[in-house]
Design a protein around this nucleic acid. Structure first.
Length: 207
DNA sequence: TGCCAGGCCCTCTTTAGGGCCTT
């Protein structure tokens, strides 16, 4: 059992939506939460080996010029593997980021042992009152800290870390019997449970 | 040439369709 507040929260900027169609990572940002505090961070641009299109340049603010002097994906992902270690992972719409993490790690022959949780799936279950579950919307809705930068990897990872902390606190607040930090497996279980069954799961989990 | 992401989740569902999220 691992505490849910000891995780690496990560975010990728990429050339597109699908590594299966040849898309690559162009930036990774991550923060390491230890006992719920940001203890370390990682950020790096990486050169995908080809030009990115204007949509991605405009969306992220990352230009072809910036990437031309960046280290290769292989170099950056090796450094990130060391940063990440065997920590569990959190990402917003994690299926997207894990697709790219797995694809980039496969290129360097790296595998990892941690599990991954999704703050978007968790939000849909515990904050059904939110207008929608986009990262930016949730940051505004919950009045979480932001430096006003969006769609850059470290900024998004940091906002996701604040969101994750807020979500863990919300669960603890709703369940007055919670006396110690949630463990990661419990949160995974919540994200895997159909929405309608979540209240019953929570009361069963904490009584 | 023509294709162009995919998993989650809801519903007017399950022999399906479409919106939400991520870049």
């Amino acid at each position: 059992m691992t505490a849910a507040n000891n995780v690496v929260v990560l975010d990728f900027e990429t050339t597109g939506l699908s590594p299966d169609k040849g898309d690559r990572a162009i930036e990774i940002g991550a923060v390491k939460l230890i006992n719920g505090e940001i203890a370390d961070s990682f950020q790096a641009l990486m050169n995908p080996g080809r030009r990115i299109n204007s949509f991605i340049e405009n969306y992220t603010g990352i230009s072809n010029q910036m990437l031309s002097t960046a280290p290769s994906c292989e170099t950056v992902m090796s450094e990130f593997a060391e940063f990440m270690g065997d920590f569990n992972l959190v990402a917003h719409n994690a299926s997207f980021d894990i697709k790219f993490l797995d694809a980039e790690f496969a290129r360097i022959g790296h595998s990892y042992s941690g599990q991954c949780a999704c703050s978007l799936l968790l939000s849909r279950r515990i904050h059904q009152d939110a207008p929608n579950h986009k990262l930016g919307t949730l940051v505004d809705y919950h009045q979480l800290p932001t430096d006003g930068v969006y769609h850059r990897a470290l900024a998004d990872a940091t906002m996701t870390a604040h969101l994750w902390q807020h979500q863990l606190a919300s669960i603890a607040k709703q369940q007055s019997s919670v006396t110690k930090p949630l463990n990661f497996e419990q949160v995974i279980k919540i994200t895997q449970t159909p929405k309608a069954q979540v209240p019953r799961l929570l009361s069963k989990m904490f009584t």
